[in-house]
């Protein structure tokens, strides 16, 4: 009897919808709470440095901006090294100004590791 039942389960499997999807043509929906790549809004940042202090991996360093921006942005701002980051979102949670947010972007694999260092930069025009 159990043999028949087992075979039935296996045959059923042949005709049911697969559990996997055809990535990259399809992708599963990523929830809003996801802890992906950071998004930083320099105009709201208070330069308090709490994010750098809480980061368990010391992936955040408070740095000055390049000279052409220092007139408007005089203080230090977080530079995030994603190579060290474990995506714990503690920096997001501690930020009182809510200017450091984690996005749904999971596509971070790259042949160029230097591109994983996210320097604080003023927003380019048109960026929300």
């Amino acid at each position: 009897m159990s043999m028949v039942k087992t075979l039935w389960v296996l045959v059923e499997g042949l005709f049911s919808k697969p559990m996997t999807i055809k990535f990259p043509h399809e992708a599963i929906e990523i929830p809003d709470a996801y802890r992906g790549e950071h998004k930083f809004d320099i105009d709201r940042c208070a330069s308090c440095g709490f994010c750098a202090e809480i980061c368990p991996n010391k992936a955040i360093e408070m740095v000055k901006l390049p000279e052409q921006y220092t007139q408007k942005y005089k203080k230090t701002y977080p530079r995030i090294d994603l190579r060290k980051c474990c995506f714990c979102a503690l920096c997001q949670d501690i930020c009182v100004k809510k200017c450091l947010k984690m996005t749904k972007n999971v596509f971070l694999a790259t042949p160029d590791p230097a591109s994983l260092i996210k320097d604080p930069m003023p927003k380019v025009q048109g960026e929300e």
């Binding site: 709470a33 979102a89 984690m102």
Partner: peptide, 16 residues
Amino acid sequence: LDIFELITGGRCYPAG
């Protein structure tokens, strides 16, 4: 894991 992702923001690691 979908539920974990929905609630904690990560599939395997809930980040504390």
